[in-house]
Every structure is written in structure tokens, then in C-alpha cells.
Design a protein around this nucleic acid. Structure first.
Lengths: 248, 248
DNA sequence: GTCTATATGTGGATAGAC
DNA sequence: GTCTATCCACATATAGAC
């Protein structure tokens, strides 16, 4: 394990630069040369410290996701302990899951919006090694939160909850990616139209907080929406009778 | 313009294959060689017919989006004509916008799920020429639908509507991309857990229909969710007083 | 319109001196 | 741990014969 001298510094600088460049241009379009160049380290340093470009990407995510996973599990632990065996409220679960992530956007030492954008953009990358990596990193947390939602919404078919978790992940992923066509069409960041003063000069920190404020109600509204009627599948009609509880 | 002989056939074969390979591996990771190889045409054919790899991607989208844009505008025209000057219902607007797209997934001649997945995955690509292209393609339609939503929800701040349109686009984009970590973690497509028989053997057509049935209520629920309270920005508190109408 | 051959550049990775 | 130099596979694009 490399540790002496400034090697630690080199490692960190590579990770920081790679995080930014992968975010800006995507994995495939970012070359090792551009990374080592911007980080002002030698071209061979990446392979020495990480082994390969793929391994570098994994490490860029690992150092952030390790913290995020831990926080998400702890947040759920605390909620469940405080509830003393009773099911949690959906709003609490969403706050623990999405709020924990979105708060990373306000904290530069955790990667800030750079990491959030990178995460949102990378989650839709088709490369096999990326999909496999995320599956492993997310497995435990997703499973815990899925079960918490099952308990919180006992009258909703579990398949429906999984679908909606899927949709919520999508809304969040796309929102933090910040590549929306709306932004390009309107020529401004979402939120500039708010009539709020100096919105165009919002720092990343304020942007992250605002995003969270806007996104959480949307997600909760989607999660609690009435169930679909399944016009094409009469078999399942019975299972979806009734609606979701309106009080959460 | 090339038109005689089998040139039209060559063009179409290239477009079909490029659509599939760009979807499977992404733009950067798909080489011209792999496209021309799979299409069984000469390597130089792409540059002859389209000019460049970038132009090829644009043409792959243009032939589908031309149809989609037309349908979306016509759908809105019909609704507005039938309403005779009255504001539309949000559910009608969402159905026209998202339903039109999702129905493409059921029709192989319109690209089917291959095109939908490609669209969802490409919308988050950071490449400048892609963002620019989509901005141009989407501008008119987005603008029309945005205005329709403004009219449909006169009590909701317009900035809030733009945010939620953004979130809805994200949920849909991510859902049709089909790269969700949930699918990898659970080792199955979303919907397999439904307890519905033979769900794992669903064709793309059935999958598209099911996706639409699940997604539309979620989007509508999110769009109609109560407004956030803006804890950090007391200035805007007055503007967000009250909630959304509960009847749509 | 189609093909071969090739120009020209860039990619990731590594060997071996220091 | 860092650096130089280099290997070699593969990329897009094009020139020019057919």
C-alpha cells in the first residue's frame, strides 16, 4: 500500500480531478491524459495507484459512497429505534434516503454538487462494469429501505412500491445530473424563473438546498399517488383495489 | 441526395443498427466499425451517407423525434380545441406528453423500447453537441406544454411548475432508460415482483404498456403534491401560501 | 454508391531508469 | 513513487479506384 511521502496527496488530487472530469465529460470521453494533466501528476500515476481507468472510476465513487451508505443506514437505524417497532412514516424514510444524499451537495468536503452531478450522470451509463459496481455498492442500503417502505405502506402491493422507488430514484438522479433539456431550452438553471432575486448567481450549496426543498414534496406526492387500475390485466385488479392512505 | 438503388436500404440499416448499439453501449463506446460491421455495410458508408459519427447520432434521433414532436403538438391541439378556450386538466396534459412517448415503446416501427431506452440514456449524456441538439429538437414542444401547464394550474407559481416538469422528465427518462440499480440488485426487471404470472417473459410491447400504467399516476401525484414551505427563503413564503387544488 | 487502402490521431497500459 | 519513452490496439475520417 502506498502511503509515504506525498503519495497520499497524489492519490487525492487524482481522485478530485477525475471526479470533476468524469462529471463534465463522462467516463468514456475522459482520457487518462486529461486527468493526469489537470492533476499535474505523471501519466503513469493512475495505473500505479489504482491499476486501471475502470478501477479509478470505482475508487472515485467508493470514497463517497462508503460515507453515504453508512449515513443512510444510520439514519434508518435511528428512525427505527425511535419508533420502537412501529412502522415509519413514508416521509421519514424518504427524508433519510434522499435528504442524506442531497445534503452531500451542500458539503464540498463530501464532493458537493460535483459528486451529485457525477452520480446522476453515471447511474445511466450502460457500461457493464459500472452497472455491476453500483449493484454491489447499493445492494444493502436499497434492501433495507425497500423493507422499511413495505412496512410503512402495508396496504400497497410491494411490486407497486418497488416501481415507485424506481421512479423516485429516477427523478432524483435526473435532477442532480443537471443535464435536463429544460435548462438548455430556457437558457437558465431551473429556479431562475422563480422571481427570486439574483437566482442566477446561486452557489452550489444554495442550489443543493433548494433542490432538496423542491424535490422532496414531489417524491412524496408520487409515492402516495392513487394506484393504477390495470386496464389490461384483469387478474390483478383485485389486488389493487382501494387507494393509498392519504395521511402520511 | 442519395436515393437510387439500395442506398435507401443501406441508410435505414445503418440507422437501425446504430440505434440499437448506441442504446446498448452509449455513444462514445460505440465505434463506427461495430456499426458498419453489424449492419453489413462498408466502413465508409456512414461518412458517405451522414457525414460524421455525430451527424449519424443526430439522424438516429431526428427520424424518431420528428414523428414524436408532431404527435405531441397535435395531441395538445386536439385537447385545446375540444376544451374551447378553457384550461386543460393536468392529467390530460400529462397523458398527451408522456402517453404519446410511451406508446412509441409498443410500436416496433417507431423504434419500440430500443428507441425509448436510447432516449432515456442519451438525455443524460454530457457531450455538448448532444445537449445542443436536444435543446433545439425539444424547444417548441416543451414551450407549448409548459404554457398549457401554467394555464392548467394558475394558482401554482410558474417556477414550481417548471421544477416539477423537470422532475417528471427525470422520472420518465430514468424509467425508460432501464438502467436502474434496483433491476440489477433484485436481479430482475421491475415488475417481476408483482406476483403476476410469467412476468419475466414479458415482451417489450407489454413492458411499455405496463410502464405507462405505473408511471402516469406517479407523475400526476408528484405534480399535484403540496407546495414546499421554503424554510430558508422567507421572502418567497407569501408566494407559496396555500396548496395545489386537490381535484384535477 | 460502394469498396479498399490508408492517413492521422488518440486511447490505455507498461517497462525500466532514477 | 515518480518519470520518460514506448508499445500497440483502435478510433474517425478520407482519397481514389471501381
Amino acid at each position: 500500500m502506498p502511503d509515504s511521502k506525498a503519495s497520499n496527496d497524489t492519490r487525492e488530487r487524482i481522485l478530485d480531478v477525475a471526479e470533476r472530469l468524469f462529471m463534465q465529460h463522462g467516463y468514456e470521453a475522459t482520457s487518462m491524459r486529461s486527468i493526469t494533466g489537470a492533476a499535474e501528476v505523471n501519466l503513469a500515476a493512475v495505473n500505479y495507484h489504482f491499476g486501471s481507468k475502470e478501477a479509478l472510476l470505482r475508487e472515485v465513487f467508493r470514497r463517497r459512497l462508503a460515507w453515504l451508505n453508512q449515513q443512510r443506514l444510520q439514519a434508518l437505524d435511528r428512525l427505527e429505534e425511535a419508533a420502537g417497532g412501529a412502522p415509519l412514516k413514508p416521509s421519514q424514510i424518504l427524508e433519510a434516503f434522499f435528504g442524506t444524499l442531497l445534503r452531500m451537495g451542500e458539503e464540498p468536503s463530501l464532493g458537493g454538487m460535483t459528486f451529485l452531478r457525477l452520480l446522476g450522470r453515471t447511474l445511466t451509463e450502460p457500461a457493464e462494469f459500472i452497472r455491476t459496481f453500483f449493484a454491489g455498492e447499493y445492494a444493502e442500503v436499497i434492501d433495507r429501505y425497500k423493507l422499511a417502505l413495505f412496512r410503512a405502506l402495508p396496504d400497497v402491493p410491494q411490486a407497486e412500491i418497488v416501481w415507485r422507488l424506481h421512479f423516485m430514484l429516477g427523478a432524483m438522479s435526473y435532477a442532480i445530473a443537471g443535464t435536463d433539456v429544460l435548462q438548455v431550452v430556457t437558457g437558465c438553471e431551473v429556479g431562475d424563473l422563480a422571481g427570486e432575486a439574483a437566482a442566477e448567481e446561486l452557489g452550489d450549496t444554495a442550489l443543493a438546498r433548494r433542490l432538496a426543498q423542491r424535490l422532496m414534496p414531489f417524491l412524496l406526492g408520487g409515492l402516495r399517488a392513487p394506484l393504477p387500475r390495470f386496464e389490461e390485466s384483469p387478474i390483478t385488479r383485485a389486488a389493487s383495489a382501494g387507494g393509498l392512505p392519504t395521511e402520511v
